[in-house]
Design a protein around this nucleic acid. Structure first.
Lengths: 262, 262
DNA sequence: GCAAAAGTGTTAACTGTACACCCATGT
DNA sequence: ACATGGGTGTACAGTTAACACTTTTGC
């Protein structure tokens, strides 16, 4: 992260030259899902001088595909590569933008954004969701950062700016639909995981209990798992076996779907 | 449609004031599906001075939701209201734009578009597909129109401008996926239709033969059809019964899916 | 040894698929 | 009458769902 002075320089450039560097009126917002302590969480930004939170988002560079822009945002916030990213909707309500958010960001430096500045125009945003291994993300621990990143339980997202709560809701809806015909665990779990862990993940996303035995059989029948000869010791009771995803088959299932269509 | 003079005025305004009226760098393109003579067709534009065809598309007005923009395009081209419209993807390859298409459109009027004009900038387009009752569309019959609309068999789309063929392909792919968990016939068929007609529609979209009897049972089991006490006379052989969609249940199925999720 | 969690097996219910048969209509 | 397409029924197979039993581990 940067200090106040250089941040100010960056903000100044954004204000004055942003419309030459970026596609005006367009942004990407990413709903970054992670799984931790049996809870589905998303990575959100705490907005300075506001109780509200925001989705990590950014602008699209001239000559940049939107997927790259979303990936760039993700990298900046999580430092993780090889992330599952999925575009799921476009949000274009003309009243969704909120000039005050940008204004308060600049107020501190004594700058008032001119009314006709590109930042204050109406923005259409393209929504992506990402699935990411919680353990691989190094969120900055300093609460002092102007834009501090934080994992928040999906059920405890009370106040978010603009339409960001709607975006999260839609992302979750898409994720649930995806779950039915696409493998998803690989991106949300550590390399090695147990069957109960995988099941908890599914149950959390679907918000529903699943039968332990049938779940195991179904998962194995998909043929995307490698069973290891190790067990997860340490927990009370019987030690469950560890699994990894079979990369080749996983990728194949991602492309063709778990059931191979009609 | 308008004459050359007023068209020129419209084009002039587009060139000079378009960036004040529309979201720059953003467009919508619509893949309009229709079903006729047992063939899945889409409505395309014949580009003047070109052998290539284009998808009906347009720009997004300042303060207009993208869905409204897509709907506007649809209305302009088909005159039909109450259309099923679905956003399915965003196309943002930086090299997808083609300045020559805009240039040749203006060349006729002796106008050369300045290099820095908004029309020649990179455009990101939001793809929609529409399902529409073929019989309700009045395509202008005059082949003289600058932008003549035409129904074309989905399998006979050889040359299209830019990435429009890819857009059609992706739309078809989405439609096929949708088919599995959403009712779709309502928008592609006349009010009254027979079971064999509905089946042909499904077979055409899926590009696959389906069992006559099982299809019928499955459709009826969805509970979205009203069987009428009329039959479609005229054809050879036994007259099939006519059906309509049960609007209430159809709308419910659209929202909740045909199977009600997990 | 006991409680709690994990592994494996069995059966019943349901769904999808593949047919067979009968009926109506135009030639 | 017969060829063709449409309507209805049934039987089998494959899948899903429900549940029982055994094994392992920490206390």
């Amino acid at each position: 992260m940067t200090k106040k002075v250089s941040l100010s320089t960056g903000l100044k450039q954004l204000l004055e030259k942003g419309d030459k560097m970026y596609q005006t009126g367009l942004s990407v917002d990413t709903v970054i899902f992670g799984f931790h302590e049996n809870v589905l969480k998303i990575l959100v930004l705490n907005i300075q001088y506001s109780q509200k939170r925001a989705l990590p988002g950014g602008f699209i560079k001239i000559n940049e595909p939107v997927e790259d822009a979303a990936y760039r945002v993700l990298q900046e916030r999580t430092g993780v590569a090889n992330i599952f990213l999925q575009q799921f909707d476009v949000f274009s309500n003309p009243t969704r933008s909120d000039a005050s958010i940008h204004q308060s960001r600049y107020k501190d430096y004594g700058v008032k954004i001119p009314k006709d500045n590109w930042l204050l125009q109406r923005f259409i945003t393209i929504g992506f969701y990402a699935l990411i291994d919680y353990t691989e993300v190094k969120t900055s621990d300093s609460k002092l950062d102007a834009e501090h990143c934080e994992w928040v339980d999906i059920h405890k997202l009370d106040s978010m700016i603009m339409d960001h709560k709607e975006i999260v809701f839609k992302a979750l809806e898409s994720l649930r639909t995806q779950l039915a015909y696409t493998p998803i665990g690989k991106n949300l779990l550590p390399k090695k995981f147990t069957m109960p862990e995988l099941q908890k993940l599914y149950e959390t996303i679907l918000d529903q209990k699943l039968d332990r035995r049938n779940f195991q059989r179904k998962m194995i029948s998909f043929g995307i798992l490698n069973k290891l000869n190790e067990t997860r010791k340490g927990g009370a009771h019987k030690a469950p076996f560890l699994y990894t995803f079979n990369d080749k088959k996983y990728q194949k299932a991602l492309k063709e779907g778990l059931y191979g269509s009609w």
